[in-house]
Design a protein around this nucleic acid. Structure first.
Length: 272
DNA sequence: ACAATTTGACCGAT
DNA sequence: ATCGGTCAAATTGT
């Protein structure tokens, strides 16, 4: 219950940044129609870019640090090795990404270049499509605890919400994207501390993060695992970022990001 | 034969 | 009691 108050400032800052972005976009649109020429349009683009950048930072600062629940290390479950680490993901940071496939069958687009093995699928309350559960192929052979969940969006079958838990400790940990993500996660305030054993966090992330900060960075996805079940819940940005208003922000992000770059993906850090 | 996927059951959290 | 996450036996694919 505490909480949200302290984020009020950032929240409104974010809202105003986005409002500005929207205004600029409209102006830009108008100019594109009129003149063929863009000195002014260019300027707008530059402003747009920096505004978006600020928004991203604000959004991230809101989402990243976990709501003070911090201290609680739930418990060191004793017992049941298997089930043990499963449900108590609390405190374990995770990375969420939204991926858009080129077509409904384009599962390849969801692949992140790492090897995963599907171990379950579940119908989720309120979701039209089931959620698929994957774990690292080398879980048993190398003791790698990385897992990911994939869910398709109700409204947009091409959109997939992918959530990564735990870091790869297997040979794949050397994968560029895995390394990059791990590094970035360790920089996250509040998380870096406990990244030792068991689940260092692993997130391989590639996309968005970099793409957002450096809009023109081309991104490519390798494909390996055949995830076969993506799914993502419509981009409920608000769900990922409880601090943001579920209203306007939603579609603004959707429009800006999803449309702007086709097979686009983005990720947010959350502590769950 | 081995590896990956499917699917129902189980378990912990809420 | 319900829900989400995982396990493991059965099934399918290579």
């Amino acid at each position: 219950m505490d909480g949200y108050g302290s984020y009020g400032g950032e929240k409104s800052a974010l809202a105003s940044e986005l409002a500005q972005v929207l205004a600029m976009v409209r102006e830009l649109e108008a100019r594109m129609d009129q003149d063929p020429l863009p000195a002014a349009a260019r300027e707008l683009c530059a402003e747009l870019a920096s505004s978006v950048d600020r928004s991203i930072r604000i959004a991230r600062s809101c989402c990243v640090d976990s709501p003070a629940s911090g201290s609680g290390s739930p418990r060191s479950d004793g017992g049941n090795a298997g089930a043990a680490q499963s449900k108590r993901r609390k405190g374990t940071p995770c990375v969420r990404r939204q991926l858009r496939a080129a077509s409904v069958q384009d599962a390849a687009a969801l692949d992140d270049g790492l090897s995963w093995r599907k171990y379950g699928q579940k119908d989720i309350l309120g979701a039209k499509y089931p959620r698929a559960y994957f774990r690292c192929t080398y879980r048993h052979s190398q003791g790698c605890l990385a897992t990911k969940h994939v869910q398709r969006a109700d409204g947009d079958p091409l959109l997939h919400d992918v959530v990564y838990h735990g870091a790869h400790t297997c040979a794949q940990a050397a994968h560029p994207s895995a390394q990059q993500l791990r590094q970035e996660l360790q920089l996250q305030p509040g998380h870096g501390a406990q990244e030792d054993q068991a689940s260092p966090l692993a997130l391989e992330t590639e996309g968005l993060r970099a793409a957002l900060l450096e809009p023109m960075t081309p991104y490519s996805f390798a494909t390996v695992a055949g995830a076969g079940a993506g799914a993502s819940a419509g981009a409920d940005f608000a769900g990922w970022c409880p601090l943001l208003s579920p209203t306007a922000l939603d579609w603004q992000f959707e429009e800006l990001f999803t449309n702007a770059m086709e097979p686009f993906q983005w990720d947010l850090y959350t502590a769950n």
